[in-house]
Amino acid sequence: MSDCYLPRLGGIEVQVADLVRMQREAGHQVEVATATRGEPLEGVHRVVARMPFDLPVHPRGVGRITRLLTSSRPDVVHVHTGAVSPFAWMGVRAAVRTGLPVVVTVHSMWDPVTRALYRALGLTYEWQRWGLIATTVSTAAAAPIRSVAGRSVPVHVVSNGLDLSGWRGLGPGGSGEGVHIVAVGRLAPRKHPVRLLKALESARRGVPSSIPMRATIVGEGPARGSMERYLAKHGMTGWVSLPGRYTREQIAKLLESADLFVAPAPLESFGIAALEARAAGLPVVARARSGVADFVRHGEEGLLARSSSDLATAMARLSADDDLRARIAAHNHETEPTAGSWASVLAGFDAAYEEAVNRPLRNV
């Protein structure tokens, strides 16, 4: 059960589609219910309302999903949500009403506003007492959910799944022209892209002028205009580039010329691009309280920062210290990442399903 699914290509959509494929290959029978319009796909039920806008909402969603679940009678319902996912939560209510075990996977970090919303919903609907099992993608993402759900809802960490074999050993080859810093992600305010530019500017001041630096920030989004204005105003267009959206093949090629990778968002629930860069061998600079900290240890796979100023200091340190950068890169080349393997992801969800099946449900 997911608000969005293929043909949309966001992070949750791709992750859910990959999970469906891997679970089917493992022998599970998997069907998908989604509010996303699109072409017919085997085992995909598109619960779409006739509305002038394309949003994951349905005025009779609970009833439609209830009828679907009643006819198919799955062993367990696995619901995938972002911060706020109206269709997915309709699926949760329908599944609990039908008496089916439910696992809810939260793919996003709950910020203070989101936590307040779910507390209010808890007072109204008492969702904490529905007998749910929850999973999320990182230790950092689990903490705010537990603070709201309390002890009534078990919250387990099951990371996103990735095939990292194609990323192993790609970098850091370096450009041979100083230090090349790379970031990959949507250029959206919640990812703090302008703060990244400020941190890069500060890092440049902290590195000797004899060391050339350049940065490539891959991605597209609503913050591009603000970033372009900042670069022009602060004279950074000569060494910071915004090439737009890249394919996976283009990103892999870029990492071959990179020296380090930066993931600036403090509310990054997992950090797929950072994990791919770490698998490629790049030292990673990220926020200490983000999901990246599950697979990047400070001083081992990269450097972790507690603030934007710390982020700048970490980038400057790795840019100026060739020995530290080489040591971390060698470690990343020699060791497999501790997150992301599909074997561990499938095992984690299987355990959550079993727990949900054995957990008493309460009708709503």
Rank of each mutant, 00 (worst) to 15 (best):
R60Y: 11
P59W: 12
T124L: 12
A149W: 05
G10H: 13
Q29D: 08
L361N: 12
A329W: 06
Y118K: 09
R64N: 02
H180S: 14
H156M: 15
S290M: 12
P212H: 00
P208D: 01
R317F: 00
V364N: 00
A274K: 02
R93C: 14
P59T: 03
R186M: 07
T139W: 06
H58D: 13
A258G: 11
T114P: 11
S269C: 08
P360D: 14
H180M: 08
S138M: 05
L275C: 11
G244K: 05
E177A: 01
P144N: 03
S269W: 05
V103S: 11
S210T: 00
T124W: 10
S2G: 02
A263G: 12
A134F: 14
T34I: 11
H298K: 06
E42P: 12
R46A: 12
P172T: 14
V106F: 04
P40I: 03
V182Y: 03
S308R: 08
L121V: 14
R8E: 10
L121Q: 15
A258F: 01
G150E: 01
V16G: 06
R46F: 09
A203C: 00
T105N: 01
P337V: 05
G221E: 06
V158N: 08
S85H: 09
A273M: 07
E39P: 10
V207G: 01
G169I: 03
V240I: 15
V345S: 03
R21T: 13
G43M: 08
W110L: 15
W89K: 04
R21L: 04
V102Y: 13
A312F: 02
R205V: 09
P40S: 03
R119S: 07
D259K: 08
G219Q: 02
G302I: 04
G122A: 15
E276I: 05
S165F: 15
R93K: 14
W167E: 11
A286P: 08
M236K: 00
T114C: 12
S308H: 14
A17C: 11
R224K: 10
P59E: 15
L9G: 10
D111C: 12
V57E: 06
S108K: 02
